[in-house]
Structure formats: C-alpha cells, structure tokens
Design a binder for these strands. Sequence first.
DNA 1: CAGTATCCCTGTCGATACTG
DNA 2: CAGTATCGACAGGGATACTG
Lengths: 106, 106
Amino acid sequence: MAVHDAMDVLSGKWKIYIISSICHYNKRRFSDILDDVVGISNKMLSKELKELEVNKLIKRTVLDTQPVTVQYELTEHGLTLKTIVENLTDWGIAHRKEIIGAQNSG
Amino acid sequence: MAVHDAMDVLSGKWKIYIISSICHYNKRRFSDILDDVVGISNKMLSKELKELEVNKLIKRTVLDTQPVTVQYELTEHGLTLKTIVENLTDWGIAHRKEIIGAQNSG
DNA sequence: CAGTATCCCTGTCGATACTG
DNA sequence: CAGTATCGACAGGGATACTG
C-alpha cells in the first residue's frame, strides 16, 4: 500500500500538530510548540521533534542566548508538507460543517 | 489548533490505510480490506470502519448473498478525502526519494 | 463471510524529577 | 530554556474462539 511511505513519517499522536505549529509560525521555539500543541508533554515533544529531524522535515538551531533557546523550522523538504497540512485543515473545517449540518437537518 | 477537526476523524493507526483501500477500489468488501491493509485484525477493522461510518465518510451495504457479504464505499463526503490521500501518497513517494537520495550523496 | 466477545500482553505516553 | 531519565498506568490492539 502506497500511503505507507507517508504514514511511516507522519503517524504518531502529535506529528501533524507539531508540523502545523512550526508551519504556522515559520520559526518556533521548544516551549512555544509545547504551548501550541495542547496536551503534549516535553518528553513526547522532544521525541517527536527528533524523529522529524531525522526525516529531514525540520531543522533544529541552537541559539546562543542565555539561557539557551532552540529554534525549529521546516526544511525546504519539510515545507512540501505545508500544502498537505493546509488541505487537511480545510478538509477538517468542511467536515465539521458537514457533520453539524447533518445533525441539524436530520 | 485548526488541524484538530481533521485529526479527530483520521487519527488512529489504520484509518488512512482503510480509506486508501476503499478509495482505490471504489467498492470493497470486509475481507478484501482485511487483506489490503497488512497487519490489521478483524477487530480493529470492524472498529475503525464503524468510526468512519459514524463520521459519514463511508457507506456500508449488506449484500443479500449466501453467506452475507458487506460492501464498503466512500460517501460523497468521504470522496473529498480522495485528493488528500492521493497527495499524501505522492508526498510519501517523494519523501522516500529525498531520504534515499540524501543517503547516497551524503 | 462479517462480525463480536474475551483475555492479556505491549508500547505509548503522562507525571515527576533532574541536568546543563 | 531545552531537554533527559525513570516509573508506572492504562488503553490499544493482537490472538483466539464464537455467532448468525
């Protein structure tokens, strides 16, 4: 099954949300993402960020501040996901309407 | 976070694969999907199909055969997912190339 | 064939505490 | 701030057996 290649990288409870967060802000720090993605723990965020980095979807930059801050952004390759996430978002909104509409009329 | 609406419906280990299977064949029977989606159990398939049906993404039709067969197909609304799944598939293939290419050249 | 019910193992993940 | 390490709960889900 062909979707498998994509699912390998994107499955997991939080990946899409993390990508969506970084996508939206272009650059985003660890604690900011922690804040964006409601419910995620630092452990999970750390783990999933690492996986996304291994897959070259995001780039991690340590900034020389005091204390250290770390910035995440999509790589050029990661940016190719932007459309998909946007489509997904739009679809979700449309879906919500569909379901709510069905409840009202039926 | 806006993707949430979509993720609510599509998250889960198997949903995308199931949709992809039905999508590909237009109409598909329980045991055929069981066969398409490598690794899924009948319990999981049954459960996830039910969730997809509740969300009006698929339609379930019991055929009057002996023994009974059941056919699943995307609803009109479910068909709006087709593009997304296709994009996801294409992205996955491109991603695979990207990663393999990076290994060769780096 | 198309499911449902049960039993039980496993990995996921949250909470907490700690480091540089 | 940005993580890492550890512990334990708990649900996800596999195997199997059963029904109509």
